[in-house]
């Protein structure tokens, strides 16, 4: 019997496909998410938009919150550790969290090195803006990817940029000649072996979800249309006027992302979505997507 194999870790993310993973900060929100049909919840102390507003250093959530959420629902529970923070990740693993997000939403603990995720039994999800980043994270052992987008802004533009970029670069790799791959690996800063795997399989070897700016059912459907395997919704749900209704609408729009009549129906009278931030108004140090290397 083998635990923590690539197949087991990547397979767990495969089971989440076509689903929505929701940020929650307590048991009550976790139950609303589960009831709405979320495939997993991300247990946090604060959602990204509040982290952004609060400023200061953002760290792993209080383990009591994570524990409370784990007790409240039967769907998988994820939690965030700071980039490169080996101990936060080990603590979450010891608690039995089902997936760890090595996340740029939190303040990085290491400005040079990410976690060596292959050493852990628990699987990891990591953010990426391009194939170089995606392949480096896979090389370190990430079992799932997500776009970075720009978390806590309610603005989808960065997530769109990131998924288009990664998918365009994957297509390029798939159509490349074998003798061109090494130079591409050099240019992307990507592990050669990972690029070979992408070329062989014709796709990324792990699932890639959308994250960072999904605020409406149409946003979720747009990311699916652009090739995301599923959607993370952070501040969008519990910062909206009617979280129950919003959560259900986002799940439904993700499942039936090409049923435009349906998306129109379920977008009616949803109340105000989160306010949102224009990306160009963010100062460089406020851009979470530039964290990670």
């Amino acid at each position: 019997m083998n635990t923590g194999t690539d197949r087991v870790k990547r397979g767990m993310a495969e089971m989440q496909k076509g689903g929505v993973i929701m940020d929650v900060i307590n048991a009550e929100q976790a139950k609303i998410a589960e009831e709405a049909g979320a495939v997993a919840v991300m247990a946090l102390e604060r959602v990204p938009s509040d982290i952004r507003a609060a400023g200061g250093v953002a760290r792993m959530a209080d383990p009591r919150i994570v524990e409370e959420v784990m007790k409240a629902v039967s769907i998988p529970v994820m939690a965030k550790a700071r980039i490169g923070h080996i101990v936060e990740a080990r603590v979450l693993e010891a608690m039995g969290v089902d997936y760890i997000d090595e996340s740029e939403v939190l303040t990085p603990a290491d400005e040079e090195f990410h976690l060596l995720k292959s050493e852990f039994t628990v699987p990891f999800v990591c953010g990426c803006r391009d194939l170089g980043e995606a392949a480096r994270r896979i090389g370190e052992g990430a079992s799932m990817l997500r776009t970075k987008g720009e978390p806590g802004t309610g603005n989808i533009v960065e997530a769109v940029r990131h998924i288009r970029k990664v998918n365009a670069q994957v297509r390029k790799i798939v159509h490349m000649n074998d003798d061109e791959l090494m130079t591409e690996a050099k240019l992307l800063g990507a592990p050669f072996e990972v690029l070979k795997e992408i070329k062989r399989e014709g796709r990324l070897p792990v699932v890639n979800f959308a994250a960072g700016g999904v605020a409406t059912p149409a946003d979720a459907a747009l990311m699916m249309e652009l090739g995301a395997d599923g959607v993370f919704v952070g501040s969008g749900i519990f910062k909206s006027d009617n979280p129950e209704k919003f959560a259900k609408a986002i799940v439904e729009a993700t499942t039936h992302y090409q049923d435009y009549e349906l998306i129109g129906e379920l977008s009616k009278e949803l109340g105000t979505a989160m306010k949102g931030i224009e990306i160009s108004s963010l100062a460089p140090e406020q851009r979470m997507q530039d964290r990670g290397w």
């Binding site: 635990t3 397979g11 767990m12 628990v122």
Partner: peptide
């Protein structure tokens, strides 16, 4: 019985 082998870190192949 659901989740009867434990949480994700207990997931395995055999």
């Amino acid at each position: 019985e659901r989740n009867s082998f434990g949480r994700q870190k207990e997931s395995f192949e055999a």
